[in-house]
Design a protein around this nucleic acid. Structure first.
Lengths: 170, 170
DNA sequence: CCATACAGTTCTAAAAACGAACTGTCAAAT
DNA sequence: ATTTGACAGTTCGTTTTTAGAACTGTATGG
């Protein structure tokens, strides 16, 4: 399973991973949400090699996550701006940050607080059901194949005809 | 910035990426949420090389995301089960799936539907503010350094003293 | 005794990432 | 007029990871 194959799997998770599922891409996107827009900005903030940065930016543009917009003629220069598709990654970023805040902080506490402009308070992101508004947890969710299903499906039984405990499980 | 360095950055996002920020780890975790627990199960579902799988599982156990539990003596065999820390990754997984459902589906529609046991309906995950319950978007959130802050901080201004447009930003 | 299940480990080749230098345009400073 | 520096990449040789396939070892069922 190579990168290009990932994007063709009938699994929304695999496809998304094909777009943003590597360390540098995720960090580049962090910078995007921090309003970094230019090549040098990304490079110096992250310490990524210029070669990789160029490649990752190209890919994100190709995928429609970033838009490459000229901000200057003469030596042609461009900025990389999040598209709506890119902005929609925000919940993923917040979920990642929140998990880190919960499980990866040292004794000094979380590196960053988030304040909600609307209510003015520092908050944590909570994932809820779009229908009833209740918080979600893995066990309360049941999945079943949708119209685009095939075999592997996302967060749903894929092809694993193996787990048939020959010996009783423990 | 290597993997081990990532986990020491004062940025909850970088630290989390240090744990789950690679393609195979994410896919392994998908399988975990699908109730895959054994080596062969992961291997055959994903097509990952056995070598990498062994390594990734070891790392996830070391990080406390999975627990390695014997399910059989004689030839000692173990299962890999999500810990609470691992289960807490659920919002990240759902956010990833949801983005894929929104932006990466083909004409056939989404591969998978999610049903909320409590209300019985198919739903989408929505991220809301823990304080006021309103849905969140990037623009409504303001960040500021927390007690564990240093320079790079997560989703907050890191060290990028560069972006000082010499020429007016067209 | 042989085939199979399972959970790895070992080895070599191929792919990706790193690191440092180089290209090229232009503006401001000397 | 020349040099310096900002900026946005590209090129290239080296190191690290990953892929792919085979091998190890215990145990079971036939």
């Amino acid at each position: 399973m190579r990168w290009d194959e990932l994007e063709e799997e009938p699994c929304s998770m695999a496809r998304t991973i094909g777009v943003i599922g590597d360390r540098w891409t995720l960090l580049i996107l962090r910078e995007c949400f921090l309003r970094t827009r230019r090549f040098e900005g990304f490079q110096s903030a992250l310490g990524i090699t210029r070669h990789l940065l160029a490649e990752r930016l190209k890919k994100l543009v190709r995928q429609g996550v970033l838009r490459r917009i000229p901000y200057q003629e003469s030596p042609k220069r461009h900025e990389y701006i999040l598209t709506q598709k890119g902005l929609d990654l925000y919940p993923i970023m917040m979920a990642i940050v929140h998990w880190g805040d919960t499980h990866m902080v040292d004794e000094r506490g979380r590196p960053l607080l988030h304040q909600h402009r609307k209510c003015g308070k520092n908050f944590d992101p909570v994932m809820v059901c779009s229908e009833c508004g209740e918080p979600l947890s893995a066990k309360e969710v049941h999945t079943h194949p949708g119209p685009g299903a095939r075999t592997t499906a996302a967060i749903n039984a894929p092809e694993k005809p193996k787990a048939k405990a020959r010996r009783s499980a423990a």
